[in-house]
Design a protein around this nucleic acid. Structure first.
Length: 432
RNA sequence: UCCUCGGUAGCUCAAUGGUAGAGCAAGCGGCUGUUAACCGCAAGGUUGGAGGUUCGAGCCCUCCCCGAGGAGCCA
């Protein structure tokens, strides 16, 4: 594209030049015969100054009454200006209104969350939401970079599936011609087939869970990246998970400085995130929690308060591994050194943002899996294709899933996960 | 699904059982360096819905609807 107009994000490169900017009116103020327009274009906000003399009485008056979020094309000379928000300012030569907006519902003062969620399609224009969505985009990019640089192959798992992956969680059911289908709640089983075909793969896409969860950490539609590696063991996966998280954090810290500033995110705590992370066996965590006074015993899962207690004890993400078998899915490999345990691991994010990774080594023995399917009361027929993977060249293999939105929530320091995806889907929230 | 809190002007919130009010936005006017600008004027209401108690209900009672926070489950 030619340079018919510039983006505010590139303002520094065009200081002193006469340029054109295309965007929307973010805010305006008037001081007598001086007009201050804040124009945003998605890459930033620039203050434009017009006076009645150079704009003419008619244009000045039109701009003075222009509703917020009207679209416009402004032309003028860019200069550095300490008094202007963003550090740059444009002396207006002309301002052409493309569309005069109706009265904009989102005002400059605070709004309640119900109102904002109903106007999510407009809310995403505000400064803070733009920053979060830019961080999300950078996190996604850093995930692709990480796996492609390491020779992984992107392997797309289906979204419509004949059945559940784990059987326990609630599924969204959809009509599939004369049959029923379900929205995927994990690409993992398909990822395992991919790893047997391509060696090391990653699945990256949306997943769906019809859980009636109503917390700041849950969405019914969320994105997950799930690597799966043939011949890798639990330890390899923990190391891969540590590297992935560290890579994401480094990329965000070095490329999203402006956004993190807007979000008032403390960057020092993010800079500390380098491998190795603290690692604890499940039983060690139970002992730690008991010492801290939690009412928990071997065999219990960690609830939200326990998770917070764990993350408060460290200033990095924490790896917890070797959980009781009963707590984990049927496809987990048993610990050869302790048959009560499964070779699974979780990574708990710092500052109470919860579990961001869950994974482990997969069971590779056909008879063991068959016994686990029976134990978990799952229908064997639907796993027929999956069991084939243990019939034709079964190998040790491992993988994990990293939740995108929880990771973004942690990096941005957001109060609630609903702000980390453009249009969140939650219990009772399907609009807009 | 359970527990707790809430629903009053377009928005954010006030209002001992006794005349429904403020700030912001929108409208009009003033101001040549504003920073969620400021100042002035005027306007804005079926108090979520249905029923009940009372001389009198935004407020008390019953049911319903909607939302938020938390729990369990999970990424």
């Amino acid at each position: 594209m030619d340079k018919r107009w510039i983006y505010i994000g590139d303002a520094a490169k065009h200081c002193g030049e006469e340029v054109e900017i295309r965007g929307w009116l973010y805010n305006r103020r008037r001081k007598g015969k001086l007009l201050f327009l804040l124009v945003r274009d998605g890459t930033g906000i620039v203050q434009c100054i017009g006076d009645e003399k150079s704009l003419g009485e008619e244009e000045f008056s039109e701009l003075d009454h222009l509703p917020l979020e009207s679209s416009l094309i402004v032309k003028g000379v860019l200069k550095e200006e300490k008094r202007a928000p963003g550090g740059f300012e444009m002396n207006l030569l002309s301002a052409k209104v493309i569309h005069k907006a109706e009265e904009y519902p989102i005002g400059k003062k605070e709004h309640g969350i119900e109102f904002l969620m109903k106007h999510r399609h407009l809310w995403i224009r505000s400064k803070r939401q733009v920053a979060i969505l830019r961080v999300r985009s950078r996190v996604v990019r850093s995930i692709y970079d990480f796996f492609f640089e390491r020779g992984f192959v992107l392997f797309d798992a289906p979204i419509l599936t004949p059945t559940s992956c784990e059987g326990t969680t609630t599924l969204f059911e959809v009509n599939y011609f004369d049959d029923k289908a379900y929205l995927t709640q994990s690409g993992q089983l398909y990822g395992e087939a991919g790893a047997m075909a391509l060696g090391k793969i990653f699945v990256f896409g949306p997943t769906f869970r019809a859980e009636k969860s109503k917390t700041r950490k849950h969405l019914t539609e969320f994105w997950m990246v799930e690597p799966e590696v043939a011949f890798a063991d639990l330890n390899d996966m923990i190391e891969l998970g540590e590297s992935l998280i560290s890579h994401i954090v480094r990329e965000v810290v070095s490329n999203c400085g402006e956004e993190l500033l807007t979000l008032e995110r403390n960057i020092d705590s993010l800079r500390r995130v380098e491998p190795p992370f603290p690692r604890m066996k499940y039983e060690e965590v139970v002992a730690l929690l008991q010492k801290k006074g939690a009412d928990i015993k071997w065999g219990d899962d960690f609830g939200a308060p326990e998770e917070s207690m764990i993350s408060e004890s460290f200033d990095k993400p924490v790896v917890i591994h070797r959980f009781p078998k009963e707590m984990k899915a049927f496809y987990m490999k048993e610990d050869p050194e302790d048959s009560r345990l499964a070779l699974g691991f979780d990574v708990i994010a710092p500052e109470g943002y919860g579990e961001i990774i869950g994974g482990g080594q997969r069971a590779d023995d056909l008879n063991y899996i068959l016994s686990q399917i029976e134990k978990h009361n799952l229908p064997q027929e639907v796993f027929k294709w999956y069991l084939d993977l243990r019939r034709y060249g079964s190998v040790p293999h491992s993988g994990f899933g990293l939740g995108l939105e929880r990771t973004v929530a942690w990096l941005c320091g957001t109060e609630h996960i609903r702000e980390t995806i453009p249009f969140p889907r939650m219990l009772y929230t399907l609009y807009p």
